[in-house]
């Protein structure tokens, strides 16, 4: 079966204004809306479009997290994933641990393509996809804005600092989604009902033989330094004079 594996993460919803706890122990998560990482949603959407074009037969979504992140897997199923796998783990997951867990899932599922978001919008690490490709010893194409499959290879356009780079990679491969790869679909109510009947398997990190790493410790969390509001000028003449005075012109 031609299968695509999509790795997703639950994060604080991107519309939430993140606040740092006064004691510096982290950010406020109580009562805060949690959602699928937006870049992972884009990755999932791409997988669904590939399947709808007839270039894949099954889309499997996998996540790592505590019991209640099954809600986000249900969202993935409602979007159109055929099955979901929940790797149950309480507490933080370092990128290399996540990559090791996903590698075990790859071993079980044998996908021809693995899609992830380029980064999760909580830790902003931008590591897991690349680490997974390294451990799997397969190609990686990060920051994808276009993905075309052609038999045993894929052609991926990447958004790099220099412009748009195109790579040809042999399959199987890991591709990480950038913002402009696609626009994810909205989930409709009947799809949410249907998703409740789709298979969702649970497995623990220990079942996969993965020992979670805890090699990077967060000592302190602080809000960023704030810029001060400056001055207002009345017209262009004042603006140019002010900038000359500051020595920036």
């Amino acid at each position: 079966m031609k299968r695509i594996l999509v790795c997703v993460k639950r994060v604080i919803d991107f519309n939430v204004r993140v606040r740092v706890k006064p004691d510096g122990s982290g950010v406020v998560t109580d009562g805060v809306k949690l959602s699928l990482n937006p870049f992972d949603e884009i990755a999932l959407e791409e997988a669904l479009r590939i399947k709808e074009r007839g270039e894949a037969q099954e889309v499997v979504a996998v996540t790592i997290g505590p019991a209640d992140c099954q809600q986000q897997l249900r969202t993935a199923l409602a979007m159109g994933a055929d099955r979901a796998i929940h790797v149950v783990h309480d507490g933080g997951v370092e990128p290399l641990t996540a990559a090791r867990a996903f590698l075990q899932i790859i071993g079980r599922e044998q996908p021809f393509l693995v899609l992830l978001g380029k980064q999760a919008i909580d830790d902003d690490n931008n590591q897991t996809g690349q680490m997974l490709a390294a451990l799997w010893q397969r190609p990686q194409a990060t920051f994808a804005s276009k993905l075309e499959l052609a038999g045993t290879t894929a052609c991926v356009t990447r958004e790099v600092d220099a412009g748009l780079e195109t790579l040809e990679v042999d399959l199987p491969a890991v591709v990480t989604a950038d913002l402009r790869l696609n626009e994810p679909r909205y989930v409709k109510l009947p799809d949410i009902m249907k998703a409740k009947k789709k298979p969702l398997d649970s497995v623990s990190l220990a079942d996969l033989g993965v020992v979670p790493g805890a090699r990077v410790r967060t000592v302190r969390t602080e809000p960023p330094a704030q810029r001060q509001r400056g001055i207002m000028v009345k017209d262009c003449g004042e603006l140019v004079a002010e900038l000359r005075k500051r020595g920036v012109l």
């Binding site: 993140v18 740092v20 902003d124 410790r217 967060t218 969390t221 602080e222």
Partner: peptide, 22 residues
């Protein structure tokens, strides 16, 4: 072994310590 980096799109700055010897 101790560095600062931004998370949450720069809305939270974390100080992180890497386990000794790595």
């Amino acid at each position: 072994s101790r560095f600062r980096r931004p998370t949450y799109a720069g809305n939270a700055i974390v100080t992180v310590e890497v386990e000794a010897g790595l």
